[in-house]
Design a protein around this nucleic acid. Structure first.
Lengths: 149, 149
DNA sequence: CTTGCGGATTAGACTCATTCTAACTGTGTT
DNA sequence: AACACAGTTAGAATGAGTCTAATCCGCAAG
């Protein structure tokens, strides 16, 4: 079920959009709500379908737009695996992704600061990295992993 | 300039293909030659264009087929960055990739065994990973980086 | 009010990397 | 010679994502 945003989350949305001079709109709120309601790294299509349940007139283009906006103001992260459809993730803490070969499901893997540091240290001088993406690909023991919010 | 394969490289190709029950063909040899001649992580299109100089009748579909075959028998690695075209890399040693924001060029970054190990160690029990992809994204000081084999 | 402005949304056309299909080629086999 | 079969080929099909042009909506100025 898709619940409404908590005041706290709405404020978060409000603030992040505001900072880059953009507004909260019903569509953006709906899309953001969907992302928070089920943190399973949905594709654009999945977000679209879920959001439609709550806002039937919503268009796919708008979902693309909203997600792009959110990425732009740091509200969500894009997750790409090989050439599959892009997925979206509202987890802001630095983390890696694990993609289950069997189910296709994506799990967040916590990334300790010291590992991040050792990773950064392998860059030769002259290389300056803003983003580090780490993704694992393999099998995960099924232990239900849909922490719904 | 695209040179011929050394005996050593031809043997390598031969062996890897043979192991998975496949043959060396002129097209496969041409594509492999292109990959070794200029280790700059070319896209399929780039491989296609380079290989055509040497084998004008070669078709794009074949380039896709050859590259897929090579990936299948462990001769080359695929490199994906966001949703850009897939690139191919004949460097077999474990390494990370650095994509230059400005030039779009991809650089190999050596990956020390101990960093690999610490990465593997962040996986919670039950997660079993075969492939780890690490990619950096940022700016690299231009210091000509086309080590043509 | 009502007019006008600008950002947001919309449907549908478009792009383009990749995959698929069905015909063809070349080589080795019975 | 006829066959089998992997590999190759051109072109059609797919599908995620982007673009375009029209419309909508909230708000500020007149």
């Amino acid at each position: 079920m898709i619940q409404n945003l908590t005041d706290h989350d709405r404020e978060h949305l409000q603030e992040a959009l505001g900072k880059s001079g953009q507004k909260v709109t019903p569509q953006r709120e709906a899309v953001f709500t969907v992302l928070l309601a089920q943190r399973d790294h949905p594709t654009v299509d999945e977000v679209f379908n879920r959001a439609r349940e709550v806002m039937p007139g919503l268009s796919l283009a708008t979902v693309y737009n909203c997600l792009e906006t959110f990425v732009g103001c740091g509200l969500v992260r894009q997750v790409n695996h090989e050439r599959e459809s892009t997925r979206y993730c509202p987890n802001l803490a630095p983390h890696a992704h694990f993609r289950d070969k069997e189910t296709g499901r994506v799990h967040d893997i916590e990334l300790p600061a010291e590992v991040m540091k050792s990773l950064r240290s392998i860059l030769p001088p002259g290389f300056d990295s803003e983003v580090i993406e780490i993704s694992f690909h393999g099998r995960a023991q099924a232990k239900d992993s849909s922490p719904s919010n």
